[in-house]
Nucleic acid binder design. Structure first.
Lengths: 245, 245
DNA sequence: CGGCCTAAGTGCGTTGGCGCACAGACGTCC
DNA sequence: GGACGTCTGTGCGCCAACGCACTTAGGCCG
């Protein structure tokens, strides 16, 4: 059974005690190491993951090995929507992008909970819609916005899922997420650092001036953030009237 | 009440009579004109549309006016998933890309039907997962594949949603869908025509050699198609054991 | 403290796709 | 059948991003 910490999963913490209690015994707080693969294309999912401090990246790897992120999942969501959507698997994979923890729940239990049709079902569906927004936004973004814009968007989204203003990731990792060359990331990072917006050293990126990122990012960041807030807003309301998960 | 025609909506026709009958009185077969906007960003949806012969394009328009398709919907799906997902609206818009017909259903009736939790709910969820696959695939595709590959992918997907081998659309329209210049489309189209794969004249594209498109398309076409088939396969099974909608 | 692995910086030629500006060419409609 | 509007063809110069090859530098670990 999970203990209460300051940083929790928004979906879980939105459940009223009556719905949460029966689940809690089956939630297992597991560590997630950087690079760990939660599921691979075409393989049936065994578990769903509700991140608390970890961030998971959903991405697709092309036949020629190129890859790019289609969406990220932090403590606002859940990894494994294919379980309740009915497909049990997907053509994309899920990889831990920022180490941390997540609550793990067995596949069949998530399905059962979803099919009970309670608040949990609503939450999962609303979150799924937010995820859809993110994916379609990224699709358009990849087509129309510059690397600098996309990278700022990505940093902001990641920052929102983390407590601190420092991200632990190499430029190479960022490049993989955005589906671009590592050199391109180096260039943009250098520019941002010279502008005093970020500072970095070997695998660490500190954000000094969030506003700077926001002006350099494309509209996509705001669209995605706004949509998550809108769709999960009553979630936060309920959180205060129930117990902290 | 809908009449029976040869080309129907796969989701509707998958319903057993017992589930379809109560709905049928509220399904209205409406014509869809090219360019018609079914919904705009941020506006609450009034109806869901189950295309029969029409094709609808979901796309996002950036602040600067650039646009690109994030997914297409033909008779395999439904336009308006935000209704049952709980958001009621989305940041993207839906535009008729190929004229034809669709069954229209009032928003509240779709929601009610979904919440009954019957087969319709399962179908809608499974279709939504297929849509998610399409969007995330397009996101990666936009990042890694050439215009020629993407255009062939798009033509194939469109072709699959149409009875004939002739598509009625201008190169400009194709360019808007792919989010590229019209001239780029002209160039690729010329190349394909010289290779004998397609033939076109002012707003018409005839596919002469489907296999040619398939070899020039990226893997994304196959991934999307396979996933739709997988997720809606038992749909087709049920179709034969029930009545044709 | 020194070595070594890995992250980050740099240069350079190449290229896919963009933006713009026209020149045909088809077909529809009076 | 002629005129006009729309669709298509083509030719630039331009630029972001790519691929590759290599150097510099951090920081961990023995």
């Amino acid at each position: 059974m999970p203990s209460c910490t300051s940083s929790q999963n928004r979906l879980l913490s939105a459940l009223p005690t009556a719905e949460f209690e029966p689940l809690s015994a089956h939630l297992e707080l597991v560590p997630m190491r950087l690079g760990e693969m939660l599921y691979e294309p075409g393989v049936k999912l065994q578990h769903a993951y509700f991140p608390t401090t970890a961030i998971v990246s959903l991405h697709y790897v092309t036949g020629s090995g190129a890859s790019s992120e289609t969406a990220g999942v932090g403590n606002e969501g859940v990894v494994g929507i294919a379980l309740f959507m009915g497909g049990d698997t997907t053509p994309s994979s899920a990889v831990v992008q920022t180490a941390g923890h997540a609550y793990r729940l067995e596949a069949c239990l998530l399905k059962r909970e979803f099919n009970r049709g309670g608040l949990m079902q609503q939450l999962l569906l609303r979150y799924t819609q937010a995820l859809i927004t993110q994916m379609s936004q990224v699709a358009a973004c990849n087509r129309h916005h510059s690397l600098e814009q996309r990278m700022c968007r990505w940093l902001l989204l990641t920052l929102d899922r983390v407590l601190s203003h420092e991200l632990i990731l190499t430029q190479e990792l960022v490049a993989n997420m955005l589906g671009v060359r590592r050199e391109g990331v180096t260039e943009v990072a250098g520019k941002l650092q010279r502008a005093g917006v970020i500072r970095y050293r070997r695998g660490h990126i500190a954000v000094l001036e969030r506003a700077g990122l926001e002006t350099s990012a494309c509209e996509c960041y705001a669209v995605i953030k706004k949509e998550v807030d809108r769709l999960l807003s009553d979630v936060q309301y309920r959180q205060s009237t129930s117990r902290v998960a």
